[in-house]
Structure formats: structure tokens, C-alpha cells
Amino acid sequence: MSFVEYSEFIQEGDVVIIFLGHDSMMPIKVEAGAQTQTRYGAIRHSSDLIGRRFGSKVTCSKGGWVYVLHPTPELWTVNLPHRTQILYTTDIANITLMLDLKPGSIVCESGTGSGSLSHAILRTIAPSGHLHTVEFHAQRAEKAAQEFKEHKVAHLVTVRNQDVCKEGFGVVGVADAVFLDIPSPWEAVTHAKKAFKRKGGRLCSFSPCIEQVQRTCEALLEQGFEEICTVEVLQRVHDVRSVTLHLPDFGPEDGGAESAKMASEEVLLAANSSHPSVTCRTATAPREMAGHTGYLTFATKPRG
């Protein structure tokens, strides 16, 4: 397995995602002889995982079963160990499209954070692109570099431990796209500008507060960026289920035949009461949902 290439069977050293049921997952690193405890019992790596096909059902020691899934950047995003607040798939998807990322793209990113977006970028730019990622926190930078190695994508990424606002990305004139997720992106705009190829490219800055957006847009305009555009994307997850609605009782009626017609196949008489009701399949909105993640500001760096 690798995060940029599918494989059929599980091997030692792989990261696999254990799917325990309804939005409950855990990532594990496969090691011969190792065991992982789940609420359904233990999974023995040597016999239950190594050599098995990704996507197969694995029975745990207590008799319960789980599925083992091939890792993807999207599964990693919902399973990774948080070292910082992370970007989620909805924002990542839009960043990827709006930055025109594709195989071969050279991308500059800061900060690396927990590597949620980094994995998605690497997946998209492989096999010939490169990611230059900058993280000013030494421990996080080191951890990210280690993860990239474990996930077999280290050849596609360079992690630099420096302050992007002061020292830039460590590269000049190479980038097709630049992504900023830092507290003061306006301080990094001149460095971002230098990182771009001469023919220019696309920039994105992610900020939770509108004041940050305001200052970033001013800096972008000052530095000659074009097509500056700020958007916000929210995702709603719909819960599919059957709902039962009772029918009102208006009392006896003259036209008895008509009420019989009303009682179509959908109208069911509940077993223990005489209330007629209708059951229908519907999708309900969640009671609570993420109402804000951050503003995404995109811009084009023109040729220059």
C-alpha cells in the first residue's frame, strides 16, 4: 500500500483503516506478531491482516467483525492523530480544484500542521509533482516527515522547519500553486509571490476570521495578484431513515367509501393502537453541523 497507489493485499508495514461500523474507524500499522484491541476483540496482524485482501471482513477474537480498508487521504483525514486543528475533506476538495492541482504540479504549503491537506495534495500531484511544505514547529515538522516516510510518499515531499513569514518556502520560482494556513497569511504573501513560477499560478489562503481575510486580500491586491475571490463551503450530511407520521382523526364521516380510498398501501395500522399512520423514507438534516470552518481566499498570480 501507499497513499498514492492502490494495492490488492495487505503487507507488513502498511497502514490500514479498520472500519468498526457507522463512522467508527481506527488506523493501524501492520506489524507481524502484533495485536490490536477493538471493541469486538483482538485483531492479530499476522493471521488476520497480512496477506489478506483490502476490503475483506475480519473476525475479531470476540466473534465480532470489522472491515479492513485501504488507506486514502480522505480516510486518513478522519483518522489521523491531531497535532493541530486540521482541514477536512470538503475544504480540501475545493482547494484542490481551485488551485488547479493535477499530476506534476509543484505546490508550496504552510503550515504542515497535522498533514491532512498534505496527504491529499500528494495523492493528486503524484507521480511527478512535488510538495514543499513549511512548518515552524520543530516537533510537528519532524512528525510529519516521519509520517510521509511511513506512508511511502516521502519522495514527493520536502518538509522544511522554518518560519514562512520570515524565511519563505525555501524555494523560489518553482511553484504552480501556493497554499497558506497560518495565523497571519498577509505576512507571507511576498514570499508566496516569489515561490511561483514565472508564468504564475494559483494561491489559496485559509483563515477562520474575516479580519484575516480582509488583510490578506489587501496584501494580495498590493502584490499584483488577480482574480481574488473569497468563498465559504459547507457540507451537509443527510441521515437517511424511515419516519412515521400519524394521520389525524376527524371523526366519522358520511362518505365512508372515500376514507377507505385514503387508506392506501402506505397507511399502516400500528399493531398496538388504532392510529393510522404513514411511513416514508426521508433524509433528515443533522441536528448540529459544522457551520464554519474557514474562509477560502483564492487568487491568481499573473505572469511576471
Binding site: 486580500c217 468563498v231 465559504e232
Partner: peptide
């Protein structure tokens, strides 16, 4: 799922 897209004048 579905998504909402809101543009801002800044």
C-alpha cells in the same frame, strides 16, 4: 451529502 457555496465581497 450536499454542499453550500457562499461567495464574499471583500
Amino acid at each position: 451529502t450536499d454542499s453550500w457555496l457562499r461567495h464574499y465581497q471583500v
